[in-house]
């Protein structure tokens, strides 16, 4: 474990806290993409199957938190706060994201075992899972400030994994090319959001697309 990965996981927890806090205090899930939230549950369920055969206090705790919280968010969006969910602006075609990740998982896993193929699927799916959310913000042209903090923290989590991978490569020749390639793509997909977030939200202005 290193400081970069610890900070990344912390940002991941923070993003989940911000999201649930926003939904429970405003009693609304407006501006949140249900499709992205559903993709995240799929990412965690397909990646953390090893909960059943490996145990590490830190990793297992986090995996349970991520699976549990993403299921809880979906419950909130389909249950109490369903009236505030507008599916007409959540229109990204996730079948292409799932299909693309599945093809890459079948073509280039580290090993052709069910666990490895599902893990690879999860890595590729996570790299694009934010697209429905970013697409929704693009379509509405703006986002609540709290929602932009959520997206920022979520983007920062995987962005911090990049120095973690560099650190691990330099100190222990640990090398996971699939995670690195997908992690870089994931972070690049946030780049225009990061730019607007930095130039607008951090200057105290509302998040509005030009």
């Amino acid at each position: 474990m290193n400081i970069f990965r610890l900070a990344g996981d912390l940002f991941h927890l923070i993003s989940i806290f911000i999201l649930i806090h926003k939904m429970t205090t405003s009693k609304s899930c407006s501006g949140i993409s249900f499709k992205s939230q559903a993709l995240y549950l799929l990412v965690y369920v397909t990646r953390y199957l090893d909960l059943f055969w490996t145990f590490a206090l830190y990793n297992s705790t986090m995996k349970i938190i991520f699976i549990g919280s993403s299921a809880y968010v979906l419950h909130l969006m389909t249950g109490p706060f369903k009236p505030t969910h507008d599916p007409n602006i959540d229109t990204f075609k996730v079948r292409y994201l799932i299909g693309g990740a599945a093809i890459l998982a079948l073509l280039f896993p580290y090993k052709w075992t069910p666990a490895e193929v599902l893990w690879t699927f999860s890595i590729w799916l996570e790299s694009v899972a934010i697209l429905p959310q970013l697409f929704m913000v693009q379509r509405t042209g703006a986002a609540e400030t709290i929602t932009t903090h959520y997206i920022f923290a979520l983007g920062a989590y995987r962005a911090l994994y990049i120095p973690n991978w560099i650190y691990r490569y330099l100190t222990s020749t640990f090398w996971d090319p699939l995670s690195i390639i997908a992690g870089v793509i994931q972070t690049v997909l946030y780049s225009d959001f990061f730019y607007i977030y930095y130039t607008k939200v951090l200057q105290g202005r509302k998040f509005e697309l030009p």
Partner: peptide
């Protein structure tokens, strides 16, 4: 570097 990943990352 080692390609086999021990899956010790989240």
């Amino acid at each position: 570097g080692e390609k086999d990943t021990p899956k010790d990352e989240l």
